[in-house]
Design a protein around this nucleic acid. Structure first.
Ligand SMILES: Nc1ccn([C@H]2C[C@H](O)[C@@H](COP(=O)(O)OP(=O)(O)OP(=O)(O)O)O2)c(=O)n1
Ligand SMILES: [Mg+2]
Ligand SMILES: [Mg+2]
Length: 537
DNA sequence: ATCCTCCCCTAC
DNA sequence: TAAGGTAGGGGAGGAT
């Protein structure tokens, strides 16, 4: 059996380079956090000497237990919802089998693992994450794992779509820094009773549209972006165009399931450079029409047109969309409303290649029949909890008192639910926000035979985080390491080179002076890993 | 009260 | 074969 374990590191408390102070050099690490672990305490954290591989290696080698990664279980949960067309649980049956049940809430846990480290002094931080997995005794054959590629970390990120979208914001920040004035962000303060005009705009099936933008013959055929065209494969669909969605194909689905629904589905490869270029054209157009632009992702933004409006909002929106199409040969859809919530919901109705205006007097009607799960910020866990009480639509949610929502979901989420189901949203369109953390994690292809493998991987992850910190020009003081370990009794991962069903644990440590140094990260990460008392094998 | 650590949840 | 990342919001529970 194989085992896999993950870990990640994270550093918090970032500070902009330049100002940091080191107060006490002596005490570089504050043992405090590390010890929390508690029982364990063997002092790993304190003495560097002890940290040595010895302790680690012993532990790790000694036990045979296996640990695996967890993605699968939870994943299933995340997606189950929609129309039931694609049952992720089935796809990931592993997870379910596993046993033990967990606690309470129905499949709540997500399986995602992440590892990260972050630092920060003030506002920035960095994350580092690693994942480890023990490899099966003999099958060394895996072509794409930490066991066979010494530069696995570096290579992995070149091909990861989630890494691309996850780091896009930092690139955007650099590219458009001249246009971003760090102003007020999201604090909900909408006291100016003035009516606003908000536009939410999102490119249609972005990754597919960009790749086929010069291939009109494919526009009405089902097409999806994926690394693999193997009809038995577990590669994930990144984006599917609208003809493909008619077959029930969605992002995140395994390619074998997509092919089963639509055998003639055309698979096209990723083109990250083109996504970057089209996103720049998209944002270039937006900034031309509006000074208040909030980027949500590479293909999606909010515009506060209240003060940039010269014409009818719908005509302006039409113009912006035409201009985007002219510049990119890709279509965008937009929603227009008086607040960000309604504008975003309007976009959904508008897709594909359309636009939709929701006047505030129609908001109540529009929301009544809307599923709670469709509200932004409400995912599988919250919506399932409500559904178990027979509350599925916004109209039903309006009958639940604020107190009851607070009790079940906490203050903030309770307020959000209460407001959103009534179409209330006071957030304001902001431009940039200060970085709070920086991290890196890998939950695929991570396999270790011994502690050396794990250490090598961890070091590479530290290097990655160090570079990212330097790239952002920030440093951090709190380093967090997260590790995934295969859950007891979990079988092989369903997904090729996946992490499977894992348990995640994390440890963090705050140091006196902010850092972006590889050597420092490496040292702290090692201590944190050791404090977790995990066995590699 | 407020802060801190270790999670969980969400979205792209 | 295939590339399951990243970051912020938020809560529980303990320390201060
Ligand atoms: N699970 C996901 C979600 C998104 N993406 C990538 C591919 C998408 O093209 C891009 C933008 O995400 P969207 O949610 O905007 O999805 P699309 O643009 O593909 O479709 P839509 O027309 O619904 O916006 O992010 C991904 O790789 N995996
Ligand atoms: Mg889109
Ligand atoms: Mg989008």
């Amino acid at each position: 059996m194989k085992l896999s374990s993950f870990f990640s590191e994270k550093q918090n408390e970032i500070c902009h380079k330049g100002e940091q102070n080191n107060q006490n050099k002596d005490i570089e690490f504050q043992p405090s956090s590390a010890q929390e672990g508690s029982q364990y305490q063997s002092g790993d954290c304190e003495s560097e000497a002890s940290m040595d591989t010895l302790e680690l290696s012993k532990d790790s080698l000694s036990s045979d237990e296996q640990k695996a990664s967890a993605f699968e279980e939870r994943e299933s949960g995340d997606f189950t919802v929609d129309e039931g067309e694609y049952d992720y649980e089935t796809a990931c049956s592993e997870s379910r089998n596993d046993t033990d049940g967990n606690l309470g809430v129905p499949q709540s846990p997500n399986a995602k693992s992440r590892c990260s480290n972050l630092f920060s002094t003030r506002s920035t931080g960095s994350h580092l994450s690693l994942s480890l997995e023990k490899s099966a005794a003999k099958p060394s054959g895996r072509p794409h794992s930490t066991l066979t590629d010494p530069n696995f970390v570096e290579n992995y990120f070149k091909y990861s779509r989630l890494h691309f979208i996850g780091t896009w914001r930092n690139r955007y920040r650099k590219r458009f820094s001249n246009l971003l004035e760090a102003k007020g962000i999201k604090l909900s303060a909408d006291h100016s009773g003035k009516k606003k005009t908000i536009i939410h705009i999102d490119m249609d099936c972005f990754f597919v549209s960009v790749v086929i933008r010069n291939m009109p013959e494919l526009h009405d055929k089902p097409v999806a972006v994926c690394h693999s065209d193997n009809p038995k494969g577990t590669a994930e669909i990144s984006s599917a165009n609208y003809p493909a969605r008619n077959y029930g194909i969605k992002a995140g689905m395994f390619v074998r399931d997509a092919k089963a629904r639509c055998p003639h589905l055309m698979i096209v490869p990723y083109n990250f450079d083109a996504y970057e270029e089209v996103a720049d054209q998209f944002y270039g157009t937006l900034h031309k029409h509006c000074s208040k632009v909030q980027a949500l992702s590479c293909d999606e933004a909010f515009l506060d047109m209240t003060e940039c409006l010269h014409d009818n909002p719908e005509e302006v929106t039409q113009r912006i969309r035409s201009e985007i199409f002219h510049a990119t040969k890709c279509t965008a859809s937009a929603g227009i409303a008086e607040n960000m919530l309604l504008a975003r919901l309007a976009t959904r109705s508008a897709k594909p290649n359309g636009q939709c205006f929701i006047p505030s007097e129609k908001a109540d009607d529009y929301l009544s029949s809307l599923s709670i799960k469709a509200l932004p910020g409400i995912g599988h866990t919250v919506s399932s909890k409500l559904k178990s009480k027979e509350i599925e639509y916004c109209s039903q949610l309006r009958n639940v008192s604020k107190d009851a929502l607070h009790k079940d979901f906490g203050k903030k989420t309770g307020d959000l639910l209460w407001n959103y189901c009534r179409g209330i949203d006071h957030s304001i369109v902001g431009s940039v926000q200060e970085t709070k953390s920086v991290g890196a994690e890998i939950n695929w292809g991570v396999r270790f035979n011994d502690n050396k493998d794990a250490e090598h991987f961890l070091n590479n992850l530290c290097k990655e985080v160090s570079l990212r910190l330097q790239g952002c020009g920030v440093q951090g003081r709190t380093i967090t390491l997260k590790v995934k370990t295969r859950r007891e009794g979990a079988g092989e991962p369903i997904k090729y080179m996946g992490c499977g069903d894992c348990e995640t644990t994390s440890r963090s440590m705050t140091i006196a002076g902010a850092t972006d140094s590889f050597v420092t990260l490496q040292r702290i990460a090692k201590q944190l890993f050791s404090a977790l008392h995990l066995d590699v094998l």
